[in-house]
Simulated assay, not measured.
Amino acid sequence: MHDIWNPWHGCRKCSEGCENCYMYFLDRMRDQDGSRIYRTKGGFRYPLSKDRQGRYKVKSGEMIRVCMTSDFFLEEADAWRDEAWAVMRRRRDVKFFLLTKRPERVASCLPYDWGEGWDHIFFNVTCENQRRADERIPILFELPFRHKGIMTAPLVGPVDLEKYLPEGQIEQVLCGGENYDGSRPCRYEWVKLLSDQCRAYDVTFDFIETGTYFVKDGKTYRIPDKRTQSVQAYRSGLSFQGREIRFHLTDEWGYDIPEKNLYVPRYHPVTCRECGSRLTCNGCSECGKCS
């Protein structure tokens, strides 16, 4: 699957959702320090990589999640960001998913030719509790992006979006519990509230995983296996496909790409059938590892 691009790695913790950061945990498992921030070597220009036939490995129409082991708007990455924007400028046929806990820095970090926004960029802020939702969503609304979403993961407290969804700016809400060291519980009623609110405003809601500790009807369930978390999230029936999000994708010369030439996700008949992320992922790359 070609769905992650990490032009740099490492981050500084800045809010409650960072307390048990999965990246820090995984780095510790490799005897590395997650607070060490560095530009990746082989992966910086990954969206531009090609196969032996000279075709892009990342296909037109795919969605790439950017900086999943860092923050795209991290201050320490200021020296590298223009080059990353240049990669996205060149691949206007690909959808780039940006996620940040630092929306206050975004306006000063946009490229010179941004204008009202590039139509292939999907900008999201993390809202792990109500405090961060009320802090970050008003900033999100003021920023010039054509596509906006919210990530409520790890969901460590209730989040009420009732006063924000009527604005019509939010196109998608992702939700998930917390994993790894020190995982805090995620509660069913928190997820149900978000699901109900998104349904009321026809906004896509994707409950991707329960987290290690999930509380429902007063009972705490310990679910250490992430695949089981994903299946249980899917089976909850809380995810919802809202109105279609339409990205305007073009080739390098600015011409529209015919629908028939865009990537169509495929799903594995077994491993993808009950996956919590199915609503919002690129599908199965048919790598053969799960057979």
Rank of each mutant, 00 (worst) to 15 (best):
M88Y: 06
Y112L: 10
F96C: 14
W80E: 09
A86T: 03
D71N: 14
D71H: 12
V94Q: 10
R91W: 03
K95P: 00
W114H: 12
R90C: 07
Y112A: 14
F73A: 11
Y112V: 08
W85A: 15
E116G: 02
R81P: 03
T69P: 00
F123D: 05
S70N: 08
P103Q: 06
W85L: 09
W114K: 11
E116I: 03
R91M: 12
S108H: 08
V106N: 08
G117A: 07
I121R: 03
V94R: 07
R92S: 15
L110A: 09
E76G: 05
D78Y: 00
K95N: 13
V87R: 00
M88A: 09
E76Q: 12
E83L: 09
Y112N: 05
P103S: 11
L74G: 01
R92N: 06
V87Q: 05
R102P: 07
R105M: 12
F72P: 13
M88N: 05
D78K: 09
F122C: 02
D119V: 03
Y112C: 05
R92G: 14
F122T: 04
S70D: 14
F96R: 09
G117C: 13
F97H: 15
F96I: 14
M88R: 07
F72K: 06
T100P: 00
A86Y: 00
M68T: 15
E83V: 03
A107P: 01
M88C: 10
E104Q: 14
D82H: 08
D82Q: 15
S70Y: 08
D71W: 14
A86W: 03
D82E: 15
P103T: 08
E83C: 09
R89C: 01
W85S: 12
T69F: 01
V106H: 05
W85N: 12
S70F: 12
F72G: 03
E104I: 02
L99I: 06
E116N: 14
R81A: 06
A79Q: 13
